[in-house]
Nucleic acid binder design. Sequence first.
DNA 1: ACAAAAGTGTTAGAATTACACCCATGA
DNA 2: TCATGGGTGTAATTCTAACACTTTTGT
Lengths: 242, 242
Amino acid sequence: MPYSYEFERPALAVDCVVFGLRPSAQDSAALSQPSSRLVVLLIERALQPFEGRWALPGGFVRIDETLDRAAERELVEESGLSIAYLEQLYTFGELKRDPRERVVSVAYFALVNPVEHVLAAGTDAAKAEWFDVSTLPSLAFDHGKIIEVALERLRSKVRYRPIGFGLLPELFTLTQLQKMYETILDRPLDKRNFRKKIASLEFVVATEDTERGVPRRAARLFRFDQAAYDALSRQGFDLELI
Amino acid sequence: MPYSYEFERPALAVDCVVFGLRPSAQDSAALSQPSSRLVVLLIERALQPFEGRWALPGGFVRIDETLDRAAERELVEESGLSIAYLEQLYTFGELKRDPRERVVSVAYFALVNPVEHVLAAGTDAAKAEWFDVSTLPSLAFDHGKIIEVALERLRSKVRYRPIGFGLLPELFTLTQLQKMYETILDRPLDKRNFRKKIASLEFVVATEDTERGVPRRAARLFRFDQAAYDALSRQGFDLELI
DNA sequence: ACAAAAGTGTTAGAATTACACCCATGA
DNA sequence: TCATGGGTGTAATTCTAACACTTTTGT
């Protein structure tokens, strides 16, 4: 045990809050909803403690990997997902978070593309499933709290950074884009004002393509131009997106 | 070594970026500055590694204290400061941050009242000193990077949360308040527009008092009403302050 | 009386919000 | 031809930004 650190050490873990967007089954009864749902990925724990309870994907940080890498690794191991956006969220260090011993957990939040939603049965985990954020089951550890913090961060950050594109396919319609914002912000947006705003953003560019195979007029497809955004962003701009 | 955690554990530390506001010596030459300076507290390291270099106050997290408590304790131990505002900033987990061994550090950022600026010689530390953020010395570890992140957070957060009051005395003039914002944001603000804005914030309240002992017209003193802010904040408001 | 900062309104331009209909397409 | 969502503009309002002089007070 080297140098001045004679104390007992807390264990160090990462936990990931993975958000996805799922088209919601348009109940003919409850209409007037955003028609897409924000979902979060949970793992059913195969081991004690909290065996059988749902929890965030996560695990311990190895001595030779950075925190970001640990988060990525856990996501791949436990769900086989590929991640469109990953950022560190907050570090949770309460004393009794884990009933076994002191565990400090660095939480991440991640966004995944809808096409990637296929869930590989993980190695450690019993099973992985998507849950609507508004109807979560009772969670292991303080993971309910972590999801709350992640949701808050997502809702505030999506308004001034173009991260929401991570929840959409590479090519998307303006209606999909609007529904994504409506779903996350949980309020309706005005279609014309929304489109005016998007049209003013140089980094959301129209392609030549349109939707295929829809039983109605096909919508134009757009894409997010990361390079254009980075350029603007480097000149220091601020811009409320929505 | 309990349960499934057979890995070697990273050490876990906290580091604190403590900001203060210092009236700047109004050089008759270089006028037209905000006339206050943003300063950060550094400790001269008494031990290897980086002996003699300046570093952020910080230290290892004990097994029976939360992260917040560890940050508070380090601040008291190393500087004797009392803290007006403390929030977790980010967790730094690169592999070679510390040349001795793997250390993951949870960084905090803190704001202190100007009256509290008296520095007690700490127990561990050689000496503590305030440095202007624009003229920092070369720092130990990745502490330069941590301060950058903290500055960015301060600059963005001060615009929509009333944390800047933590840098002022309990009773302050509108000119002091304006200079505080000018110093942090590093740009001039229009006096009349600024006062109009502040007047619209119900949680910045005028007192009956005025400045004492100044060789000119005395300014009215204001205070920040935390309870009023919390009430508004609970009804979910958003409000750009500046 | 002078120096120094306190205090105070108006106007032009920009951004935001509210609002409803015609169009294109596939079934 | 019908159902479905795609696509479009204008006017009222609110917010933001630019701008300069008078007042108070202590020395």
